[in-house]
Amino acid sequence: MTSLETLLRNTQDVKVIDSTINNEDYVALDLSPSNHELLNFDIKCAVSFEKYIENHLALNNAQIAFGGYNEKRNLYQRSTIFKDEETDERNMHIGLDLWIKAGTPVLSALDAKVHSFDFNAGFGDYGPTIILEHQLEDQTFYTLYGHLSLNSLDGIEIGTVFKKGEQFATLGDAAVNGDYSPHLHFQIIKNISDKFGDYPGVCSKKELPFYLENCPDPNLLLKITA
């Protein structure tokens, strides 16, 4: 059996956001504690955070900022959903974020059918979320698209089929997307278990080995960087 990681590496020409934007127009974004530029912005505030993203894009003459897989972030300290008295702090990001303005088209990575969807409301959560199911050779896996617009859920049904590169959603704004600067959280999931319309996108350091195995690097598929 060919591993999913190998199949992802061998799959070409994949876009999950605005197909008119070339990979040369992407710029990496570091949201880890080592990025001291973040000290100049209140990233707990969606408006200030969006100004930081826009400034980063303008300085780099880019249209989309990307990054975050296996990245430690202090950003989540602002929301209680990532820390309670009984669990370890969840601050390790296990998807890939693509930062661009609200309303940007979101595309199916590959031929797919809708596995599930939900409006994960709440401060710091995904907001509108759609999970697609894919088949590559003998491998079944899933892709999660978080922080969508609310109208992305209108009319969608479990089992709805989308072709590779077909638009099925748009990005939401801070009013619905968990109070973040607009972006797509894109995540690959091998075994989704009994999750429906939701799956952890941030984990604790203790849980990281499991999630890195179950959620391969999305850039294996997107190939934004060499």
Rank of each mutant, 00 (worst) to 15 (best):
F123H: 12
E24A: 11
Y52W: 11
Q139D: 03
D88R: 08
Q63L: 09
I43N: 15
L148G: 11
S152L: 06
T20K: 11
D111T: 09
I131K: 07
A102W: 03
D18H: 04
N60I: 07
R78A: 05
I158C: 15
I53V: 05
V106T: 01
A46Y: 14
D30G: 12
L75K: 11
G122I: 13
I130Y: 08
A28R: 14
I131E: 04
S116I: 10
N61T: 12
S19P: 01
T87Y: 04
H134D: 09
Q77A: 12
V27S: 08
T80M: 11
T143K: 09
D13M: 05
N40P: 05
L110F: 00
Q135P: 02
E37Q: 14
E54W: 07
Y26C: 00
N40M: 11
I43E: 13
I43A: 09
P128V: 08
D97G: 10
D118H: 13
G67T: 08
K15W: 00
N151K: 14
L96V: 07
Q77Y: 13
K72C: 13
V27W: 01
A112H: 01
W99P: 02
D97A: 04
E37G: 03
S48T: 10
H56Q: 13
I156V: 14
N35F: 04
F82Q: 08
D111M: 03
G68R: 04
I17T: 00
L150D: 08
E157K: 12
I100R: 02
K51V: 06
P105G: 01
E89L: 15
D97M: 05
E85W: 06
S19H: 04
Y26S: 01
D30V: 09
E24I: 02
V16Q: 00
E86Y: 10
P128H: 09
D42Y: 08
L31I: 15
G122C: 10
T104F: 04
I131A: 07
D18V: 00
T104G: 02
N35P: 11
S152M: 15
A109P: 01
S19Y: 00
S108A: 11
N70K: 02
G159H: 05
M92C: 03
F66L: 01
G103A: 02
D30S: 07
E157L: 15
Y142E: 09
G127K: 09
N74V: 12
S48I: 07
V16A: 00
